[in-house]
Design a binder for these strands. Structure first.
Length: 798
DNA sequence: GAAGCCTTATTTTTT
DNA sequence: ATAAGGCTTC
C-alpha cells in the first residue's frame, strides 16, 4: 500500500487528513476530488478504522464501480462499502423489511412497471390517463416522494387541479405497490428514512456506518439528504463533496441548498476548497469558465489551470447526423493513430437516442465501443418478459409482473379475461396469481381457462426449480416451459439478436450463480471466523460491497433492477471507447472528448429551456461535458437531423455562441463556419488522416492579437457561390444570436455599415444579450431601430 | 372474445 | 422510428 498522503496539494492534504467530524469539500471539476476521496478512505483505514465502518455513496453505478476499483487499488483490496444511494437503501431494507411490515422478498419496480401502475391508478380514480399524461403524473408522484410526502401530506399541499389528480393517483398507486410487495426508487429512500427515524435502528446503523462519504452532494434531493443526515447525526463523521457548478439533477428533485447549507447543518464543519484543475488544458478550462460565466446562479469560483495552453477546440458543422457520425468516427481514428488509447476517448450526447447514428458508423469501421448506461439491456422486451417470470417465482404477489406475462406467449388470455381476473382478484383481495389458481368459472371459460391452468402449472414447475436458489436453471426452465424461442421466432422473425439477448441473460445468471456459491462459502467461513485469525477474517468478509447478503435469486433481481447494465461480453473495457449521455459522464475524464448534437432544442434541450433555471442547468450540463476533457475537445452539430422519423432543420446551440471564440482556431469558430454558409470542408480538414496539426500552428491566434472586433467577421462578403450540398439542401443560416462581444461592443457614436442601408452612425444602444437594439442614423436611409441579433451591422474604424 | 392491422402520439437526463 | 391504443376482422 502506497502512502495515502504522498503528492497532495495543501488543500487536498487538509481534506484527506481531516478524519473526525464533518467535512465539506467544494471541488471544482478536475481538482482531484476522487483522489481526495480515495486517499481519505485509505488514510482512514491506516489510522485503524475498520473497512466495514466506511460507507461511500455515489450517484451512478458507473461512478461507484470506478471508485470501488480505485479504493481497492490504493488499499490492497480493502472491503469498503461503495454504492449508490438506491443500492445502499435496498440492501439495508432487505435486512429490516419485516420491521417495516413488508416481506424481505419485496421487488423493486422499474419505470415501465411504474407506468403500468400509474395507468391503473388513473383509471381507478376516474381520471383520463391521456388528458393528464402518465409521465407527468409519475414525475409528480416522484417529486412527492423525493420530498418525503405521503399521499395524505401531499393532498394537503395540492393546489392546482392537476396536483389533485396526481395526488389521487399517488394514493392509489401507493396502495397498488404495497399490495404487490413492491417498492419504487423513491420508496427505497423514503422507507430508509422511516427506518432511520426509529432510534434503535438508527443507532445500530450509525454504529455500522461510522464514516460516511457522500459524493456529488450538490445533486442530493431531500430524501437522500435526510438519509445522510440521520445516519451522521450521532457520530457526525460525514464528508460531503460536490461542486455547485455541476448540479445537473434538478429534475430529480436535487436541491442545491443541501450543499450550500452544509455549514448550517454542521456548524463545526471544516470546509476545503479545491480550485486547482489538474485535468484539462488552459484552452479547455477557458472555454468551460467562459460558458458557465453566462449563468447568473453560480458559486463564484474559477478553476485555475495547472497545464499548458493546449490545442484549440475543434468545432465541426455537419449537414446530417450521418455525416456527423462519420466525422466523429474519422476523428476518433485520428486520435487512435496519435496513440490515444481507446479507453481515453469519450463521446457524449444530451439524449440517448443520439448514439444510434454513431453506433452504426463505429460498427461499420470495426471500432469496438461501449454504450454506457443506455441500451438498457434490462429494458428489452425479451429480457423483461423473462425477468417478470423470475419475479413471479420470487414473489407471487407481484401483480405488475403477472400482468406483463400472463399472456406472453399468447395463452388465449385477452383483455376481457384479464379484466375479469382482475375484478375477481380485487373483490377477494387476492393477488392475480392466487386468483388464477382458483380459476373461477366467472372469470374463465374455454380457451382462457386452459391458458390459466397452463400458466399456473408452469409457475409450480418453476417454483420447484427455484428451490436450489440458482437463477440460470430457472431461466432455462422458463424458456423451455414457454417455448420462448419459438415465440420470438414467430413474433420477431427478423430480429435474431433477441434470442442472443436471452442467451446473454442466462449467461449472466450463470455467472451470478457461481459468484453466489462462492459468497455463501465465504459467509460460512466468516461465521465460523470468530475463532479465526484476523487475516483470515478479512478474506472471509469479501462479498459484494462487503455485505454477505444479496445473493441468490433475490439478489439477482435486485441487481437487475438497480444496476441496469449488461454483463461484460467481448472486449474488456480498456479496449473500447465509451459512448454515453452527459449525465452519465459526470465524474469521469478522458484524454479526448467529443460532444455531439450541439443544437438548439437538443442541447439545451427544448423541454428544459422554457424557464431560466432549466437553461442554467443545461449550461451546467454543457460545463460538465467540456470539463471531462483532458487535452482535446471536439464539438459538433448537424444542420439536419432525423426527428420523429422526419428530417428537420437544426440551429446551432446557444452554447456554441457563448463559448469564448478564442478557444477555437482562427477562422474556425461558429461564426466562421456559418459565414461559409455550411461548407462541409472546413479548415479542420487540413488535419485529415494525420490528426496532428501542421508544423506551423497557423491556427493559433498571433500573440497579443485582439479578439475579433465586434462584427468584424460579419463584414466579410458571403461566399461567392453557394456551397455544393448533398441532400438535404441547405439554406444559408440566418445570422441569429450573436455572441456577447457583438452585442456589447457597439456604443453611441460608432460608425457602422449595413449591407442594405449603407453607412451610418449609432445614436444609442439599449437592451442586452440577444435583445440588444441600436438606433442608427443612416446617411441615406434615415434613422432606424435595429435588433443587433438580426441586423448585419459592421463596425468601422472612426 | 381475441388476434392483427392501422392509426396515433411521442421522445431528457438516472436510480 | 417506435410503441401504444383503437378499430376491424376472424
Amino acid at each position: 500500500m502506497s502512502d495515502p498522503l504522498a503528492d497532495l496539494t495543501p488543500a487536498q492534504h487538509a481534506a484527506v487528513t481531516h478524519t473526525q467530524g464533518p467535512l465539506l469539500v467544494i471541488a471544482g471539476a478536475g481538482s482531484g476530488k476522487t483522489r481526495v476521496i480515495t486517499r481519505r478512505v485509505a488514510h482512514l483505514l491506516r489510522t485503524g478504522v475498520q473497512p466495514h465502518h466506511v460507507l461511500a455513496i455515489t450517484f451512478t453505478n458507473k461512478a461507484a464501480q470506478e471508485m470501488r476499483e480505485r479504493i481497492a487499488e490504493l488499499t490492497g483490496g480493502a472491503k469498503v462499502w461503495v454504492s449508490t444511494f438506491h443500492a445502499f437503501c435496498a440492501r439495508t431494507l432487505r435486512r429490516y423489511a419485516e420491521q417495516l411490515g413488508f416481506p424481505r422478498s419485496f421487488t423493486i419496480v422499474d419505470n415501465a412497471d411504474q407506468r403500468t401502475a400509474v395507468h391503473e391508478a388513473l383509471l381507478e380514480t376516474k381520471h383520463d390517463p391521456k388528458q393528464y399524461g402518465i409521465p407527468r403524473v409519475l414525475q409528480q408522484i416522484g417529486r412527492y416522494k423525493d420530498m418525503l410526502l405521503s399521499p395524505d401530506q401531499a393532498r394537503a399541499e395540492a393546489c392546482t387541479p392537476f396536483e389533485h389528480v396526481a395526488v389521487d393517483a399517488y394514493a392509489y398507486y401507493q396502495d397498488l405497490l404495497t399490495q404487490n410487495a413492491a417498492l419504487d426508487f423513491g420508496d427505497l429512500l423514503h422507507k430508509t428514512v422511516t427506518l432511520l427515524e426509529d432510534e434503535d435502528t438508527r443507532d445500530s446503523l450509525s454504529t455500522r456506518h461510522r464514516y460516511l462519504l457522500i459524493d456529488e452532494y450538490q445533486d442530493t434531493n431531500h430524501a437522500q439528504y435526510k438519509v445522510t443526515q440521520l445516519l451522521a447525526q450521532s457520530h457526525r463523521n460525514i464528508c460531503a463533496t460536490g461542486d455547485p457548478n455541476q448540479a445537473i439533477y434538478g429534475w430529480r428533485g436535487a436541491d442545491i441548498r443541501n450543499i450550500l447549507e452544509f455549514e448550517r447543518d454542521y456548524p463545526e464543519a471544516k470546509v476545503v476548497h479545491l480550485e486547482e484543475n489538474f485535468r484539462s488544458t488552459q484552452t479547455i478550462l477557458d472555454a468551460a469558465n467562459g460558458l458557465i460565466a453566462h449563468n447568473t446562479e453560480r458559486r463564484e469560483h474559477t478553476l485555475r489551470c495547472t497545464q499548458g495552453e493546449g490545442d484549440p477546440i475543434v468545432l465541426q458543422a455537419c449537414d446530417s447526423e450521418r455525416q456527423e457520425a462519420s466525422w466523429v468516427a474519422e476523428r476518433i481514428q485520428g486520435r487512435l493513430r496519435s496513440g490515444v488509447p481507446r479507453s481515453e476517448i469519450g463521446v457524449f450526447y444530451r439524449t440517448n437516442a443520439l448514439s444510434r447514428a454513431l453506433e452504426v458508423e463505429l460498427i461499420r469501421r470495426g471500432l469496438p465501443f461501449e454504450v454506457i448506461g443506455a441500451t438498457p439491456f434490462y429494458q428489452r422486451k425479451e429480457i423483461k418478459d423473462l425477468l417478470s417470470y423470475l419475479r413471479l417465482v420470487h414473489n407471487p404477489n407481484d401483480d405488475l409482473a403477472a400482468i406483463r406475462v400472463l399472456n406472453v406467449p399468447p395463452r388465449g388470455l385477452g383483455k376481457t379475461s384479464l379484466g375479469r381476473l382482475k375484478t375477481y382478484a380485487r373483490e377477494r383481495d387476492l393477488s392475480l396469481v392466487a386468483a388464477a389458481r382458483e380459476a373461477p368459472a366467472e372469470a374463465t371459460r374455454g380457451r382462457a381457462r386452459k391458458g390459466l391452468a397452463a400458466f399456473c402449472a408452469l409457475l409450480d414447475e418453476l417454483r420447484e426449480e427455484a428451490e436450489a436458489e440458482l437463477v440460470a436453471p430457472v431461466l432455462r426452465a422458463i424458456v423451455r416451459g414457454t417455448s420462448y424461442y419459438d415465440y420470438l421466432a414467430k413474433e420477431y422473425p427478423e430480429e435474431e439478436d433477441r434470442a442472443l439477448n436471452v442467451e446473454s441473460l442466462i449467461g449472466g445468471a450463470r455467472d451470478w450463480d457461481v459468484a453466489s456459491h462462492d459468497a455463501r462459502l465465504r459467509a460460512l467461513a466468516a461465521r465460523a471466523g470468530e475463532a479465526l485469525p484476523e487475516l483470515f477474517r478479512s478474506v472471509a468478509n469479501a462479498g459484494p460491497g462487503g455485505e454477505e447478503e444479496g445473493w441468490g435469486l433475490g439478489g439477482f433481481l435486485e441487481h437487475a433492477a438497480l444496476v441496469a447494465e449488461r454483463a461484460d461480453d467481448g472486449a474488456p473495457d480498456e479496449e473500447r471507447l465509451s459512448l454515453m449521455t452527459v449525465h452519465a459522464a459526470k465524474g469521469l475524464e478522458f484524454d479526448s472528448v467529443f460532444v455531439l448534437g450541439l443544437e438548439e432544442g437538443l442541447f439545451p434541450h427544448s423541454r428544459s429551456t422554457d424557464d431560466p433555471t432549466g437553461l442554467e442547468e443545461e449550461r451546467r450540463l454543457a460545463y460538465v461535458a467540456i470539463t471531462r476533457a483532458k487535452r482535446r475537445l471536439h464539438l459538433s452539430y448537424a444542420r439536419w437531423r432525423a426527428w420523429h422519423g422526419r428530417s428537420s432543420s437544426q440551429e446551432p446551440s446557444l452554447f456554441l455562441y457563448e463559448l469564448p471564440q478564442e478557444a477555437f482556431p482562427a477562422g474556425a469558430s461558429l461564426r466562421d463556419l456559418q459565414r461559409a454558409g455550411g461548407a462541409r470542408r472546413s479548415v479542420h480538414d487540413a488535419f485529415d488522416g494525420v490528426d496532428e496539426p501542421p508544423e506551423e500552428p497557423y491556427w493559433q491566434r498571433p500573440l497579443g492579437a485582439p479578439l475579433q472586433a465586434a462584427g468584424a467577421t460579419r463584414s466579410a462578403p458571403a461566399p461567392a457561390s453557394p456551397p455544393r450540398m448533398c441532400f438535404p439542401p441547405l439554406t444559408p443560416l440566418p445570422a441569429r444570436k450573436p455572441d456577447a462581444p457583438v452585442a456589447t461592443a457597439l456604443k453611441s457614436g460608432d460608425r457602422v455599415y449595413h449591407e442594405q442601408f449603407g453607412p451610418g452612425e449609432v445614436l444609442d444602444v439599449r437592451g442586452e444579450q440577444l435583445r440588444t437594439r441600436a438606433r442608427v442614423k443612416f446617411r441615406d436611409h434615415g434613422t432606424k431601430d435595429l435588433v443587433l441579433q438580426y441586423a448585419r451591422l459592421t463596425k468601422r474604424a472612426p
